[in-house]
Amino acid sequence: MAIVPPASPMQTNREDVVAVVAPPLEVPKRLRFVTRALLTLWSNRKARAGLVILGFFILVAIFAPWLAPHSPTATSFRPYQNPNAVNWLGTTGNGQDVLSQMIYGTRVSLLVGLGAGLLATCLALIIGLVAGFRPGVVDDVLSFSTNLALVLPGLPLMIVIAAYLRSNSMWMILLVIGFTGWATGARVMRSQTATLRTRDFVTAATFSGQRLFRIVFREILPNMISLAAASFFGAATAAVIAAASLEFLGLGNPNTVSWGSILYWAENDNALLTGQWVLVFVPGLAIVLLALSFILINFGIDALSNPRLRER
């Protein structure tokens, strides 16, 4: 049972949720399934709010070149300006337009958040599936590693690893976060797989001589979708916050245009003490909103898989 970083509070109960196994799904057309899942999420008030915020950020990221009034890297303005008619959010110490940096920075934050979340979830899914399906030594070793990874302090570990690596590009940060964030999900997936493995329909498939690979993909995976989705958004929440933290500490590449690096430069230039609070407030709020959207979507997924949590 996991009280996970405050970033993903809904995971606290994931193991209770495990008991409520989603009804076996027929294998529908993939697109129809995605549409239906989105529609069901949409019907939950909190998830709807989360989807709207996330959708907004995705649109901003896609249309950044059209939306941004200036180049995010051009140092063509007077530095340390407060918000004005030309630079709506002011300029940085290097004379860059903050609004344009915010708009382009959306791409990095989204990519790191979603990418690291996806990487962590894939790792969690693989490790959880294997451990759950191979009781005995394999399970023991994997479960021990999972528990070990779970008790290693996440951010200090990331800081140490990032400090060893020389070039901390956005991709490196993504990999570090992804490779350190799989444990929570893996533990939940393992217990879910172990439960499913003994279910009648899986036993039936095994006895009818289906290959393991097919059983996992046809019988087990469809029943792990809500769990994997919840795990994904949980990991993505943690990733957004961790990436911002690492960049804020200067462990990313400070020349990448991202919300975290705006904060890093703001802290470096003592922006708060020079009255340029916009430089801290705006990127910080954007990070909060993005993390919040993932958390809200997760509320919806939780309510779907655990009827007791459903709102009346």
Partner: peptide, 24 residues
């Protein structure tokens, strides 16, 4: 009971958070 089990993991988050907070 489940909250107590989660205590250790929450502690990890607080320690991580404290690194940043101490620096600020």
């Amino acid at each position: 009971l489940p909250n107590v089990t989660g205590f250790g993991l929450a502690l990890g988050a607080v320690i991580g958070g404290s690194v940043l907070v101490e620096s600020i």
